[in-house]
Each structure stands twice: as C-alpha cells, then as structure tokens.
Nucleic acid binder design. Structure first.
Lengths: 183, 183
DNA sequence: CAGCAACCGGACGATGCTGTCCGGTTATAC
DNA sequence: GTATAACCGGACAGCATCGTCCGGTTGCTG
C-alpha cells in the first residue's frame, strides 16, 4: 500500500499525501532556518510547491508544523555522546532551535510539543549523568541548568549578526564551559 | 501613563512638539515592555494620544524610537555599582532590553544605536574593572564576555513564560555567577 | 491685526498575510 | 468501464499594518 515510486509521480491522489507532508516539512525547515518563526504560511507552501490548502490540511497551526520539523531534527541531536557534542549540534541548527523555542512558549500544552520536550529532557539527563560520571561536569549542575544553557546558546547564536556569529559562539561556549566545569 | 489632560491646554503649535515627543517615548516604553518590538506603530500613537503623522515625524523608523526609549533607560543602569547590580537592573527591564537588542541587530549603523552601545561598553568596562580589582570576578573575563552575559540575561528572562520566569532568573544568575567568579 | 510658517491628527491607498472554499484530478471499488 | 471518494492547488475575501498626504489649527512676526 505505502509503496514509494520514483519516476513520473503524479501530484494528485491519496498516494501524494505522504509526499506532500515530507515536502512541506522540508520547506518549513529551510524557511524557519532562514527567517525564524515569523515566516508566512504562504511562503512555506510556495517553496514546497504545494497549495495553501494542502498546508493547512496537514498542519492547521504553525506550532504543529514546527513540532513536526523539530521532531526530525531531534534525531540528529540524540547522536551526541556528550554535552559538548550536543551543544555543537544545537548550534548547527541554532535558528531552527530558536524558532522552535519561540513556538513552545506560546503553546506548551500541544501534545507534539510536550513530546519533544520530554525527548530533550531525557537526552540531556543522560548526557549530563555521563559527563558528571566522567568528571567533566560539576556534580552541582542540574538537568534544568543544562536545558537553560541549550536555550541560551540557540537563542544567542541565532540572534547574532552574521559577522559576529563566530565570536559570539566561541565566547559563549567558553563561558558555559567555565560555568559547568568542576570547581 | 495618562498624561496631563487638564485645563484648556492646546495640543497644537510648536510648544507641543516637545510634549508630544515625551508622550511618544513614554507610550513606546510601555508598548515595547508589553509586546516586544513587534507592536504596531498605530498602537503606540494611539496610546500616546497622538496622530500617526506626528509619530512618523518624530521617529521615522522604529529603531530610532527604540533608541530614544533606551537612551532614557540607560541612565538607570548607570547607577549600578557592581556587575551584580547591573544584572539586577537589566533583568528589571528585561523585555525592554530584549526589544532593543532585536532592533540593534537590524540597524547597527544608526548613530543613536552606536551611541547607546558605547555607553554600555564604557559602563560594563568600569564595573568589570572594579569587580576584578575587588576579587569578585576572575581576571580572565573580558568586557565582551560581560556584554554577552547581559544580552543573554535580557533575552532569556524576556522570553520565559510568566510562571517559570522566577526559576529561570535564579538559575541563570547562579550559572553566570559560576562562570564569572575567580577559579 | 493680518499673514505666515510650523505642526498636529486622522484619513487613505497600498501591501502582505491568514484561513477558507471550491472546481478539478486521480486512485480505487464494483 | 464507470461511479465514488479522497485529495490537491490556487483563488478569494477579510483583516491588520505601513507610510504618506492634506486640511485645519496655533503661535509668532511685522
């Protein structure tokens, strides 16, 4: 039933629904990364080569769309083996992460958002425990502290002007390294 | 706030220009503090009891308006006697500061913005030197680090949901205290 | 007192986004 | 082969904001 054909694929019919969904998520990822959460729905639909109707059918609200995008991205984050690696991955998707965080504050009760929050909490908890066991992070640091660091990193790097992004990045990494390292 | 509506005070003529300017700045301060930089120009004019034409005449762009508002606020910041006190003052105006920072990244070359940047840099430099001399802050910390901390504090507190604002505040303050304190 | 220049305030056209609705197309069932 | 149901895509009306423009008022000057 769910058989994916290459070649001259029709853009209509039930089989195209999954394709459209993927195209929309990909387009939204690029738009969010470029312009934050403020981008217009119409722009996302245009980039995906899909009508606005289809966009609203798949994702009635912007929060659900953002959640779908980030659900994909979090897979990448979960490959990190240490907090440092997690920070690297977060920074690489800084604008995306910041956009998602903006969405979170306005809709904490959406199930999809909660699910992502739990995945992040579990991930951070595991990495923190490992780093503390290895003596790389002070025992006084709590999971909430690390989540805060992640948030700050994403927002700060995302908001920085392009020419000072590199400086901001190294400086904030060093700052947080001081904050987390054992006394 | 409600301005002086008493007596047969004409709202026209050259003398009213300065009054209008003050009213606009006051209205903009409240609007920015409530809704960030995204508030509509029309809303600011309405709150100030002034026509849109007058708003655009005094402040052609939103950046200039934000700069005028923050130029007022920075007087308060300069009363701080230590970095800790500066952080307190920044957090008290968190939403305002965050709104202004957003304006800065989109118009770094505006003279009014540059002027405020210089005042902040001078202020932070002086406080940092004092705190380092007193042994409260590590000598390895640079002025740019502190400016980064200020930015992060403002943005983080401003973006937090009301119910977790208190927790975010204490946690980030503790985190940055660890980062800045001598080894 | 009369003319002038500055300034005020709101109306107004333009622009862009939102969310819905419907004609048309395609796979599937019979 | 034909009927049916699902789904696509773009048009469209509604809405908010932007930035300008102009009639009207006020204080100043000769």
């Amino acid at each position: 039933m769910a058989d994916e054909r290459e070649g001259p694929r029709p853009n209509r019919g039930p089989a195209a629904a999954a394709d459209n969904r993927r195209a929309l998520i990909a387009a939204a990822r690029e738009e969010f990364a470029a312009g934050g959460l403020e981008v217009a729905f119409s722009a996302i639909a245009r980039r995906a080569g899909v009508g606005q109707g289809s966009l609203y059918r798949h994702f009635p609200t912007k929060i659900e769309l953002a959640a779908a995008v980030f659900e994909d991205n979090i897979d990448e984050l979960e490959r990190a083996g240490s907090l440092d690696a997690l920070f690297d991955a977060i920074v690489a998707q800084a604008r995306m992460s910041a956009a998602f965080l903006d969405a979170v504050v306005s809709a904490r009760d959406v199930p999809a958002v909660q699910h992502i929050g739990e995945r992040m909490a579990v991930l951070v908890g595991a990495l923190l425990a490992a780093d503390q066991a290895a003596g790389r992070v002070d025992g006084a640091i709590a999971r909430e502290d690390v989540l805060l660091v992640v948030t700050m990193l994403a927002r700060t790097v995302a908001a920085a002007a392009p020419e000072e992004q590199a400086d901001v990045l190294t400086r904030s990494r060093a700052l947080f390294a001081r904050a987390l390292s054992p006394r």
